[in-house]
């Protein structure tokens, strides 16, 4: 029972990280239809931001956190301007920006790789080591509450929903598609960077941390569905609990438990491709 309780807290915290990365995907997919696998690299940049500001320059945690998130928002906005908008304006098919963003993934990773030493870099905990899980959970819930409020209660959020439902009709209604796209990338990068910053004290800031996070977040998104904000968090929780309970309790060799996320991904894509939560009518 003690094991289960310890695992429940740990899996919830891991699920929050997966959920944040899934939310970053969702913020961009909803209005644009673009799957941006560079979210993992944005998380990595967030982690290195934590190393620079919190470890190297010893900034207070709240200030460091705010600057990291703001910086990532700028990175996301710039990414949209450089790799997405020119292609959309030229009428390129949807696959073109997705491939361009894969190229950006490599650019981000290599930039960090050559700018920092090869070893994992330490990032401090916000509080004590044992309280970090609760901090991750609290921050994530606050972010999701904010995202829910934005989409459900604000005019801007409604315009996002309108673009998600029908891009052309939304444009005809006077919604600025360019601004919505730019905002979605900025917000997506901010959320991904926050996820990277929160997980960094555990896994350290390292240049190869992006791709696993991108896969975990994408799997969580497929499980939860892109229709609703809550889906990203639900998918994150389900994935983390499935992973950790399998490792702990399933009578299979340790190495095989790594296949659980991929199994989940395949099953959901085959059986329920729209995810657990469907978009509201």
């Amino acid at each position: 029972m003690q094991d289960l309780l310890e695992l429940a807290v740990g899996a919830t915290a891991s699920g929050c990280i997966y959920g944040l990365i899934a939310l970053a995907y969702l913020l961009m997919i909803r209005p644009t239809g673009i799957i941006n696998f560079a979210v993992g690299e944005w998380a990595m940049i967030g982690a290195f931001g934590g190393y620079v500001l919190l470890t190297k320059y010893e900034w207070p945690y709240p200030a460091g956190m705010a600057v990291v998130v703001a910086f990532l928002c700028v990175v996301g906005w710039l990414t949209e301007r450089i790799a997405v908008r020119p292609l959309i304006e030229r009428g390129a098919p949807l696959l073109a920006p997705i491939l361009a963003l894969l190229g950006m993934l490599v650019v981000f990773r290599e930039t960090i790789s050559v700018s920092f030493p090869p070893d994992p870099m330490p990032v401090p905990f916000a509080f004590e080591i044992q309280d970090q899980k609760y901090f991750i959970i609290a921050v994530t819930l606050a972010v999701f509450a904010g995202a829910w409020f934005f989409f459900e209660r604000t005019l801007w959020g409604k315009s996002f929903e309108a673009v998600a439902l029908n891009r052309r009709a939304a444009a005809l209604m006077g919604i600025n598609l360019t601004r919505v796209t730019a905002f979605s990338f900025a917000a997506g990068a901010g959320v991904a960077g926050l996820g990277g910053l929160l997980v960094a004290p555990n896994v350290s800031a390292q240049y190869l941390m992006g791709v696993p996070l991108a896969i975990q977040g994408f799997t969580a998104l497929v499980i939860g569905g892109v229709g609703r904000v809550e889906g990203a968090l639900l998918g994150g929780f389900l994935l983390a609990f499935a992973e950790q309970l399998t490792i702990r309790y399933a009578p299979i060799p340790g190495g095989y438990a790594q296949g659980v996320p991929l199994l989940f991904l395949i099953v959901f894509l085959l059986v329920r491709p729209s995810g657990l939560l469907k978009a509201k009518a």
Binding site: G10, A13, P253, G254
Partner: peptide
């Protein structure tokens, strides 16, 4: 005999299994 996969965010389940 446990394995922690690359990109994991915790090794708690593996260590619990070892403790048990």
């Amino acid at each position: 005999d446990e394995v922690v996969s690359r990109g994991a965010t915790t090794a708690m389940p593996q260590m619990q299994k070892i403790r048990a």
